[in-house]
């Protein structure tokens, strides 16, 4: 029991040092611009199809599921507004965060884990190249910037999914639907929801890198690194979401 508690504190300490190191290294030249854009391409662009499909399904399903309840009150006209609000404020950020925790955190965890096991990280270190800067800073920064973009993209696709859902049972044109969506959304809804996704992105990138970078020796640890990266990153997304909602709730 004592060892267990000691390990938890050790882990918290290690993660904190890892995070502090990120802020120390991120502003220090040389900047690995090329690697950063490469990671943006992998994390952002390569995740577009997955996010598009899940976003569309989220919008469509949410509309279809909510319609009967709203119809009971004769409030079907609220459907576009309600779906847009739910998507933008909560569902798209969290679901996209979870999808990215699965795809990106595990990918980074496995990639860096295998680099660690096959001594590629050591090879960088002995060539006097800072592996933290080249591997970790670029990936964390790319995840921090790309995940908010993916969430905004998921918002858009989800709203289109909602349009498809509305049109299954009734006939609403795009202009009227868009009008209702825009009318229901305030900046106060959109801005905090977008801000929290930067934290989602940061934690997903950081957890993936931390798990990979600290993988033990042996191929088995690569799988473990990828697996625990997904678990911890998904959990972090939920915890951050809860904290963000509480903070926003204090102000508005």
């Amino acid at each position: 029991m004592l060892t267990y508690i000691k390990n938890i504190f050790n882990d918290v300490g290690d993660v904190s040092l890892f995070t502090i190191r990120f802020f120390k290294e991120v502003f220090k030249p040389p900047y690995e611009i090329k690697e950063f854009f490469k990671q943006c391409y992998f994390i952002g662009y390569k995740s577009l199809p997955l996010v598009a499909i899940t976003g569309f399904i989220m919008g469509l399903v949410l509309t279809l599921q909510s319609r009967p309840t709203l119809a009971e009150f004769g409030a079907e006209s609220w459907l576009p507004g309600m779906v847009a609000l739910s998507l933008v404020k909560e569902i798209a950020p969290v679901i996209t965060g979870l999808i990215c925790a699965g795809k990106i955190a595990s990918g980074i965890g496995a990639e860096l884990g295998s680099m660690k096991v096959t001594e590629q990280i050591d090879a960088m270190e002995v060539s006097a190249i800072n592996p933290y800067k080249y591997l970790v800073v670029t990936r964390v920064l790319a995840a921090t910037l790309m995940i908010p973009l993916l969430v905004v993209f998921a918002d858009g696709v989800g709203i289109i999914g909602g349009f498809a859902g509305v049109n299954i049972h009734s006939d609403v044109n795009m202009v009227r639907y868009s009008e209702q969506v825009i009318k229901s959304l305030d900046f106060i809804d959109v801005i905090p929801a977008v801000i929290k996704t930067f934290f989602f992105g940061f934690s997903i990138g950081l957890v993936g890198c931390y798990k990979g970078f600290n993988a033990a020796n042996g191929t088995e640890s690569v799988g473990k690194a990828a697996n625990s990266a997904v678990v911890v990153a998904s959990l972090t997304v939920f915890i951050l979401d809860m904290m963000a909602v509480q903070i926003v709730d204090l102000f508005y």
């Binding site: 680099m115 050591d122 060539s127 006097a128």
Partner: peptide, 14 residues
């Protein structure tokens, strides 16, 4: 380190 070369057991190619 720049003045030292290190050949790893499995070559550690990227």
């Amino acid at each position: 380190r720049i003045r030292i070369g290190f050949l790893f057991q499995n070559a550690a190619l990227y």
